[in-house]
Design a protein around this nucleic acid. Structure first.
Length: 934
RNA sequence: GCGCGCGUGGCGGAAUUGGCAGACGCGCCAGACUUAGGAUCUGGUUUCGAAAGGAGUGGAGGUUCGAGUCCUCUCGCGCGCACCA
């Protein structure tokens, strides 16, 4: 049921004095109507469409599939669903929502079957922190916040199909989040097929002959696996964080310090999909900058791994001499490798360190661990490091080179060790200079004048001849290839591709998240192992708790629920929970079939809405995936990368039919405060939509959000600016409504201050609106507007579409007769932008004409006739040397020769070339004439 | 440091493939209707100039009959990445 807009009473009294039009009655009226009629319901394949639904009136009733009809082409348009915070909506949220709503209504009018849903990403830290402080269950806070968000979003009149609302904290939802986690758990990545496959397709090596060994082998290869690895721990938040959630050594949320600490954690094997996540970016329509961010994050780099033997290694065990494996993108500079550097954490450090150097090495390592990661990666800081005393053999020069440790080499990237080529690597050069290590040129810059020291680009190899191989004289690309082939032939190295992307740390030590559907058991040997909760036992609900803090011994809060953890058969539950990203990784799929109790989505619904069935006559081919996804840039890597990853796993396992979820994605720009600063509570520049709605109404608010500027740009809010679009709506109102009846109406309003839509019934439309033949000028104004609005909507240029409507209204308001055949299509153009006002006037227009009003949302979008736009006569500027000097009027059919003759005759232009020679006359038909004279 | 994006009136912003810079809106100025106006309507509003005319899209060059748009350099702002070998 639609609530009334609960305006604060005083504000209503103050603002109602000068209302441009009675939006306070119109808006609740139509919101209630849409709710009652279920106007914006989208129907799934196989679902019966009620006869009286407007969709049925346009596209046919009943089950179109059963009736042998085809479904209209689908259009799936999605907003990034919000985290319902306690602060409620601010004007930034509805920017994207308004844009998508306008497009949803536009596509619906064009006959597309539109899916436009909304939901709540409601697990998360604020509700939990609030619970820790107050003891109030996060469920209660969450429900309140959802209610606030929903009220605010509904008051804007968006055409969401609310029957598909999802809430990630609803057990009927997260049952499937857990189910998808189990799909990952029960799968492995087969490098042979480059796909995720069920874990039972895994073949075991012969040495795994006990069940325990096979289990260990299997568990190491699952897409969801457990590892004991250094992770980012945030003391303040009391949880670990994913790499992506740590910015400059601080938590992305709240900016708290984080430290590296080894812990047993769940990981998801996103790195296996790095190449596909990268390559498939080419198949989707995202902005170049967003794709670039994802590419950077994935961080593919091609190079070679090279093994450097330890010079004085005493080991003579069967493994033979130990070596240090490095990754380099410049194998062609191998001859210039004059020393090596290991990350301080590298496992071989102990082995290579000599007894004389041990004290120094230990001291350095201790110092490094003390440093926070912020200090370690601090900008432009001095290089530090110590010599280990050990040496390695350069495989091509056969020379002994010293092995150092330094914290500029990261354990987490590549092999955690490098060959240092100071001549052609900036960092190595800096280090070598500081510690006086040799610098040997091996690349000649193409330009003689360029200094070879620190030259890091491609050139010609020099000084690159050893006892067994030479690449001297080869250009860099060739040299890389040759040396890599040689290394491969000798078993000393191989071509390798490295990614910056790390596996996704998936567990959190929190209460308010999805529990893992995992149990721990001990086998006969007392070894702990994990197993999946049976699908039938999902969802695993979080236990009730009174205290949401971690346990005193540092266990996650779920460990407090001792009864819940312990199963009767001796199994123990996993006490970590999933990160907030889990729920948002797949919500767009749940929208397709929200209430399905048997599957996360039915195959038929999935195939239809994701566009796998492309046989849709009578419409554009649906996009493979979501047609348009709109949201902020803040999710450029995290959410969008995680969701793409899950989608690919589900695709490989046959649960979804498209390789990518979001075919087209647009980032809306940030809305700044009136002071041009980012909106924030501390700055006190937050604009609350509720206040704008009281003063101006939802339609004006929507219009202003779109009129401010291009959707993708950052732009400042200016409440004064709302006046402009508000006046425009007032002019539209007066374009239709009879002045006399409006005066009576205003008196009625004054007598009955309580908002009652029934009062609207007293209004009449102006007698100027008649069924008369439109003039050519009127048709031209209309068709120009239809063309502009249509094209601008296709290009997401909402601001200029609105301006075109303003131009039309300005012209139309001067007409003594306003032909219904012109005014009616205009309302259709206005409808996506200002749906409440358009519905009211549409309804009245049809009553005025004694016609039955078809449902505005489903009325066919007006077409424009280019023939209506052609002019008989054109006005062209006449330029002399590029400057406009005069104008001429010529018939539209004039030939270039005739235009030139007219231009030469243009009197005001003549003085500017009098006495000069006309060198050339450029005639651009329909545009201008330029006389070049000197 | 590297990568990407953006610089147009007092302000938000318009300007097809290079073709009349400043659409539309805010603000401001003047007028009309008014007891009144944060209402409505009309006109004006880049800048210098009385005008004729000149200048003008961060700055400097270039290509072109013609550049806000293309090219080179440069300055400023924003965003992303940041010892990734």
């Amino acid at each position: 049921m639609i609530h009334r807009l609960d305006f604060p009473q005083t504000a209503v009294l103050m603002s109602s004095l000068r209302r441009q039009y009675p939006f306070h009655l119109i808006e609740p009226k139509w919101q209630r109507h849409w709710e009652a009629e279920q106007t914006f319901r989208a129907f799934n394949p196989g679902e019966a469409v009620p006869d009286d639904h407007p969709f049925a009136q346009r596209h046919g009733a009943g089950d179109p599939a059963a009736a042998g009809r085809d479904w209209p082409a689908k259009y799936y348009i999605l907003d990034m669903f919000p985290y319902p915070s306690g602060a409620g909506l601010h004007v930034g949220h509805p920017e994207g929502y308004t844009a998508t709503d306008i497009l949803a209504r536009y596509r619906r009018a064009q006959g597309r079957h539109v899916l436009h849903p909304m939901g709540w990403d409601a697990f998360g830290l604020p509700a939990e922190q609030y619970a820790v402080k107050t003891g109030r269950h996060p469920r209660i806070t969450t429900e309140q916040n959802v209610a606030t968000f929903k009220r605010q979003i509904r008051s804007l009149g968006f055409s969401y199909d609310w029957s598909r609302e999802v809430d990630t904290t609803d057990p009927d939802y997260f049952r499937w989040t857990q189910w998808i986690f189990l799909q990952l758990y029960h799968a492995w990545f087969n490098p042979g097929t480059n796909r995720a496959e069920p874990i039972d397709t895994l073949t075991y090596p012969p040495e795994c002959d006990t069940e325990a060994e096979r289990r260990a082998y299997r568990d190491e290869r699952r897409l969801a696996y457990v590892t004991e690895a250094p992770v980012w721990w945030c003391e303040t938040l009391g949880t670990v964080l994913a790499n992506e959630e740590v910015i400059d050594g601080r938590s992305e949320v709240g900016g708290h310090p984080v430290v590296r600490r080894p812990m047993r954690q769940w990981m998801l094997r996103i790195t296996a999909f790095a190449e596909r996540l990268l390559q498939d970016l080419d198949t989707i329509e995202w902005s170049a900058s967003l794709k670039e961010m994802q590419r950077n994050w994935i961080g593919r780099s091609e190079g070679a791994e090279v093994d450097f033997a330890l010079a004085d290694d005493q080991a003579s065990d069967e493994a033979g001499r130990r070596h240090i494996r490095v990754f380099t993108t410049r194998p062609d500079t191998l001859f210039g490798a004059t020393y090596m550097v290991l990350a301080p954490e590298h496992p071989l450090v102990d082995r290579v360190t000599t007894s004389e150097q041990r004290a120094a090495v230990e001291a350095y390592r201790a110092e490094v661990t003390k440093k926070s990661d912020l200090e370690r990666t601090d900008l432009a800081k001095d290089k530090t490091g110590v010599f280990t005393g050990g040496y390695a053999i350069n495989p091509v020069t056969r020379g002994r080179i010293p092995i150092w440790i330094a914290d500029y080499v990261l354990i987490s990237y590549g092999t955690g060790a490098i060959m240092a080529v100071p001549a052609h690597d900036t960092r190595d050069l800096e280090f070598a200079t500081k510690f006086d290590l040799p610098v040997v040129q091996v690349v000649q810059p193409p330009d003689e004048a360029t200094d070879w020291r620190g030259f890091v680009e491609a050139g010609i190899s020099v000084n690159s001849t050893g006892p067994e191989v030479s690449i001297t004289g080869l250009p860099t690309v060739e040299a890389k290839r040759r040396i890599t082939e040689w290394l491969e032939a000798r078993g000393l190295g191989r071509k390798t591709i490295n990614y910056k992307l790390r596996d996704w740390l998936f567990s959190r030590q929190r209460y308010w998240g999805e529990p893992f559907p995992i149990l721990w058991r001990k086998d006969a040997d007392g070894t702990l192992y994990h197993e999946a909760v049976a699908t039938a036992d999902l969802p695993v609900l979080p236990p009730p708790l009174d205290d949401y803090k971690p346990t005193p011994d540092g266990q996650p809060p779920l460990a407090r629920a001792t009864d819940w953890i312990q199963l009767p058969d001796g199994a123990v539950r996993e006490v970590n929970t999933m990160p907030q990203w889990a729920g948002s990784c797949w919500y767009y799929l749940r929208f397709l079939d929200t209430r399905n109790a048997d599957a996360f989505v039915s195959p038929a619904a999935e195939r239809y809405w994701m566009g796998a069935d492309r046989s849709t006559p009578g419409g554009a081919a649906p996009a493979p995936g979501i047609d348009l996804y709109v949201g902020g840039t803040e999710h450029a890597v995290l959410h969008l990368l995680y969701a793409r990853f899950w989608h690919k796993v589900l695709f490989d396992l046959g649960h979804v039919s498209t390789p990518e979820p979001f075919y087209r994605l647009v980032n809306q720009g940030l809305i700044l405060g009136e002071d041009g600063q980012k909106m924030s509570k501390s700055r006190g520049n937050v604009v609350n939509p509720d206040e704008i709605l009281v003063e101006y109404g939802a339609d004006a608010f929507r219009l202003y959000e779109m009129f401010m500027g291009p959707l993708q740009e950052t732009k400042p809010w200016n409440t004064k600016g709302v006046d402009g679009v508000y006046r425009f709506l007032g002019r539209v109102w007066r374009l239709f409504v009879d002045e006399g009846s409006e005066q009576d109406f205003e008196q009625q309003c004054a007598v009955h201050p309580e908002a009652d839509p029934a009062l609207l019934d007293g209004l009449r439309l102006t007698a100027a609106i008649r069924e008369v033949e439109p003039t050519d000028a009127q048709l031209k104004a209309l068709h120009a507007c239809v063309k502009k609005v249509t094209e601008d909507l296709d290009g997401l240029r909402f601001n200029t579409a609105i301006s075109a409507m303003m131009v039309f209204v300005k012209e139309a308001i001067a007409w003594e007769a306003r032909p219904a055949a012109v005014m009616r299509p205009f309302l259709q153009l206005l409808a996506p932008f200002a749906p409440h006002l358009a519905e009211e006037l549409w309804d009245r227009l049809h009553a005025h004409l004694d016609q039955r009003a078809p449902s505005l949302g489903y009325a066919a979008w007006p077409a424009y006739d280019p023939a209506r736009l052609v002019e008989d006569e054109l006005e062209l500027p006449v330029q002399v040397n590029g400057k406009v000097r005069d104008h001429i009027r010529v018939p539209a059919s004039a030939t270039p020769e005739e235009i030139e003759a007219a231009a030469r005759a243009a009197a005001r232009a003549q003085p500017f070339y009098a006495g000069k020679t006309i060198r050339k006359v450029i005639v651009v038909p329909g545009r201008l004439v330029n006389i070049a004279a000197s």
